[in-house]
Computed example of a mutant assay.
Amino acid sequence: MPGKIRTVEEKVLFRKGTGGYLYYRIPGILPVRDALLLVLEARNSRLGDWGDIDILILRRERDGELSQVHRIGESTLPPDGTMRTYNNPVLIPDGERVHLIYHKNYERAFLITSLDDGKTWSEAREITESYRRFPYEWNVCATGPGHGIRTGTGRLVAPVWLALGEVSRDGMTRAHAPSVAGAIYSDDHGETWQAGALAQGLANGNETTVAETEDGKLLFNYRNTDECRRRALGLSCDGGESLESRWFCEELVDPRCFGSMVSTAEGILFANCEDAERRIHLTVKRSRDNGGSWEKVWEVDSVGGYPDIAEADGKVYLFYERQEGDEIGELVLAAGVWDREA
């Protein structure tokens, strides 16, 4: 089995201050039959996660051509004092379908579907009620970010997080903590969604990623604010309806940032910034024992931010934020291949 991934492509796709937006964040990636689907938040606000934020969906063709296929948002309209934050898009594969879950103002959840590999999209359908089924009072809801999965049984699983945050004086924005992480799932191609297990005992569990293990279990990987500065992992034997175990992974150091996983023939891959304090050393690690242990296989960038990871056509792709000082300067697409001699 190969031991390392080497970079064969690195391209800046988005740069702050270009394309009519102040900056870009929250990348997601999903392979389809003849392209890569990319999704992100395009921000025209200095309010961080709040303000005028659009969601862009793009296709990257096999020849490298990049085209925008859909935009969710209203940020091109003159400001009128109301909040219009479109946030946390998550792409989910489903056979010949692709779904996208997103949110408005961190309080309403919507789903759109494509039947042609992301070229066109359906009208939005609200699914906020699925989040109300969790035994947790919340005023902030979000998916992922990153991507969801389709399991071997056909179940769709999307990681989510909920928060009961302090409301700002203007009454429009809310803190993202205290929070709890979990998942929603669908057994009918996204028509209905059920509330899955919440990870108990975590300090502000939130942005989560999930992968299916070789034996059909689900491995969840949670961001949290525990003092150990490690990722928390959880294992489910019933498709995310409950957790049979949860633990902190000593090998997965984390600066309290989003990280992403994907299942491959070479093992489960996990991408994050491998530092306890700063968003630096963007790294991919591999587990060949369903999350029990991890080895470094790809040093992607000396800096980083939020990444999303995918595999297609013999390559491992990472769509990620590149930090510049205290800001995200670029969104970068990197591709690597397994080095058979490493």
Rank of each mutant, 00 (worst) to 15 (best):
M1V: 13
I5V: 14
T7K: 13
F14T: 01
L22D: 12
L22F: 12
Y23P: 04
Y23T: 09
Y24I: 06
R25T: 05
I26Y: 07
G28T: 09
L40Q: 04
L47S: 11
G48Y: 09
G48A: 06
R60L: 15
R60A: 12
E61R: 13
D63K: 06
D63N: 15
G64M: 05
V69H: 04
R71V: 15
T82E: 12
N88V: 08
E96L: 11
E96A: 14
H99Q: 12
H103F: 15
L111G: 01
S114C: 04
G118Q: 05
T120P: 00
W121P: 06
W121D: 11
W121Q: 07
S122E: 11
E126Y: 11
E129D: 15
S130F: 08
Y131N: 08
R132P: 00
F134I: 11
Y136P: 02
N139T: 07
V140A: 00
P145R: 08
H147T: 13
R150G: 08
G152Y: 04
G152M: 08
G154I: 13
A158Q: 05
L162Q: 05
A163C: 07
L164R: 14
G165I: 04
G165P: 02
E166F: 09
V167Q: 07
S168G: 11
G171V: 11
G171S: 10
T173Q: 05
H176T: 11
P178Y: 00
G182R: 01
Y185P: 01
Y185R: 05
D188G: 05
H189A: 15
E191F: 12
T192D: 13
L198H: 07
G201C: 14
G205I: 02
T208Q: 04
V210I: 14
D215P: 00
G216E: 09
K217L: 05
K217Q: 13
N221K: 02
Y222E: 10
R229G: 12
S245D: 13
E250Q: 13
E251F: 10
E251V: 08
R256A: 14
T264R: 02
A265R: 13
G267F: 10
F270R: 01
E274Y: 13
D275Q: 07
A276D: 13
A276Q: 06
I280A: 02
V284P: 02
S287M: 09
G292A: 14
E295C: 01
E295T: 02
W298Q: 03
S302K: 07
V316S: 03
R322F: 04
R322K: 14
E324Q: 13
E324T: 08
G325Y: 10
G325P: 01
L331Y: 06
D339T: 08
